[in-house]
Simulated assay, not measured.
Amino acid sequence: MHNLAKLYFQGIGVPQDENTGLMWLAKAAAHGHVIAEQQMAALMQRAKAEG
C-alpha cells in the first residue's frame, strides 16, 4: 500500500493523483506501516501549520 501511494504521488505507471496517493498512504498507516504513519503525521502537522 505504501509503495502504491508513492507510485500515485509520482505518477509512475499510473496517472499522477495526489488524492489517490493520500488514500493509499492512509490505508498503509492504518495497517501499521511505520513509515506511512510517520508521513501521515508530518502531513497533519503541515496542514495544522498552514490552516
Rank of each mutant, 00 (worst) to 15 (best):
47 A>T: 09
32 G>T: 06
16 Q>Y: 09
42 A>S: 15
12 I>N: 11
5 A>G: 14
7 L>R: 12
18 E>L: 11
40 M>P: 02
49 A>Q: 13
44 M>Y: 14
24 W>F: 15
35 I>M: 11
21 G>I: 04
37 E>Y: 05
50 E>W: 09
23 M>E: 14
8 Y>V: 04
2 H>A: 03
14 V>K: 06
5 A>N: 04
6 K>W: 09
1 M>S: 08
16 Q>G: 00
6 K>N: 14
1 M>E: 12
6 K>C: 09
49 A>M: 15
30 A>T: 06
5 A>L: 02
9 F>S: 05
11 G>P: 07
27 K>F: 03
42 A>C: 12
1 M>A: 15
2 H>P: 00
26 A>L: 11
13 G>V: 01
38 Q>F: 12
7 L>V: 10
21 G>K: 03
34 V>L: 10
32 G>E: 06
11 G>Q: 06
32 G>Y: 06
18 E>D: 11
26 A>G: 05
51 G>P: 03
10 Q>H: 03
2 H>W: 03
14 V>T: 08
41 A>W: 00
27 K>Q: 02
14 V>R: 03
48 K>A: 07
5 A>D: 01
24 W>M: 11
43 L>S: 04
51 G>D: 08
45 Q>Y: 12
25 L>A: 03
23 M>D: 13
45 Q>H: 12
25 L>C: 07
24 W>I: 02
34 V>F: 08
46 R>Y: 06
10 Q>F: 03
29 A>Y: 00
35 I>D: 07
33 H>D: 09
14 V>Y: 05
15 P>G: 13
33 H>E: 14
44 M>K: 13
14 V>E: 03
49 A>I: 02
25 L>D: 04
47 A>N: 12
41 A>F: 05
12 I>A: 13
17 D>G: 04
1 M>K: 01
1 M>Q: 06
6 K>F: 06
12 I>C: 10
32 G>M: 10
12 I>V: 15
33 H>L: 05
13 G>S: 10
38 Q>S: 11
24 W>E: 03
25 L>K: 01
13 G>R: 04
35 I>C: 12
4 L>D: 02
27 K>W: 01
45 Q>T: 14
3 N>H: 10
28 A>L: 11
12 I>M: 15
3 N>P: 02
26 A>H: 09
47 A>C: 09
40 M>F: 03
30 A>R: 04
29 A>Q: 03
41 A>I: 02
4 L>G: 02
29 A>T: 00
46 R>V: 05
34 V>H: 05
22 L>I: 00
9 F>G: 05
26 A>Y: 07
37 E>S: 06
28 A>K: 00
4 L>M: 14
